[in-house]
Design a protein around this nucleic acid. Structure first.
Lengths: 191, 191
DNA sequence: GCTGTTATGTACTTATGAGTACATAATGAG
DNA sequence: CTCATTATGTACTCATAAGTACATAACAGC
């Protein structure tokens, strides 16, 4: 009924995500995004609103995908311990070597000034809470698989802290073995 | 021999540090700093160079102080375990409640775009490495205080990951009890 | 083809922020 | 007191980046 879009919004959002991921929200200019996507500013504004709204959309997609994956992996199989180990191990390639050096978009945003905005802060906190609850609920459900002194809630929170710490340390491009060794340490808490 | 400074550079650096700490490097304008310090831009430039150089000076001071404190506490007393616990416990007020919400200047900088600069990245990595080595060296020196399967290097790295993770999670203003519980989990690795 | 509608590209406005020129003020030396 | 020297405050320049006005292009329906 009128001129159609010349681009796929999903593809554009993925490209924008990569730019934000690498440069941070404040470090990214709209010109960076127009250059990466090939779109002109008016097209971006028409499709996604201003820079803030675009970032929120990107961040939501990022969160949604990670949560969906976690929801699946953490609840898979009969052993809570093995499920969580599989989930953590899957992050090794993402927080070691050159590929890891960009860290995690959400955690990067958390330190960026953008997180002063309520909208962003709320989303990041909800994301952290969601992951922690997935871990906690699985550990609680299979509480019987662990020893007497085991505390599912504290363990879940500690795994989150390590997960986040590794994502920050990822910027130093550690070896996969180094990350693996840290995960092994953490797994010692799940007994 | 000429007109003297009207301000104490150390005080100004502390104020500038607080502004950078709260708003991040990219989120801080020189006007923010002039407003907070009461100094005009030419005075800042004459005393500390440009925004970059000022930030590097601030960051170095921050790192130096934390390392000096760690060097003292971690090597104090006969028990490596207790020394490290004391060191970690001292951070509880800094990564819980309202006071914790600014996190750690160094870790914030790590996610800020400023860390793309070699100068900054190098300093942050050296700082992380230094803290980790203090932990590692103490654990190695008192290796005999721990069990057969204990791995000082892996333990040191894991403590660093948790430390960093807690500093990031600090922005969510967790309770001191929550942080304490996580430290208790980590201390279970030092046996 | 013609028309209404929506997308696109160019070129702008506007704001903000880094950095500086220059005139002035405050000191110590003589 | 006078001068050389260094600090300060005002007011600027210049670059960058967000957001937009407007003319034009591409489609659907008639």
């Amino acid at each position: 009924m009128a001129r159609p879009r010349s681009f796929d919004p999903d593809e554009v959002l993925d490209v924008a995500r990569d730019v934000f991921w690498q440069k941070g929200f404040q470090g990214t200019s709209l010109d960076d995004i127009t250059a990466a996507t090939g779109l002109a500013k008016p097209s971006l504004y028409a499709a996604f609103g201003d820079k803030n709204a675009l970032f929120l959309t990107v961040l939501d997609r990022y969160h949604t995908r990670i949560v969906a994956h976690a929801e699946k992996v953490i609840n898979e199989g009969s052993s809570a311990r093995e499920a969580i180990e599989r989930w953590l191990a899957a992050f090794i390639p993402r927080c070691s070597g050159a590929k890891g050096s960009r860290g995690c978009l959400s955690i990067n945003a958390s330190a960026d000034g953008i997180a002063e905005q309520k909208d962003v802060r709320t989303r990041i906190e909800a994301f952290n809470r969601k992951l922690e609850h997935l871990l906690r609920d699985r550990l609680r459900a299979d509480r019987a698989q662990f020893g007497a002194g085991f505390d599912p809630d504290a363990a879940a929170h500690t795994i989150m802290a390590v997960y986040i710490g590794l994502m920050v340390l990822a910027k130093d491009k550690p070896s996969a073995a180094s990350v693996r060794a840290t995960l092994d340490q953490i797994m010692r808490l799940l007994v």
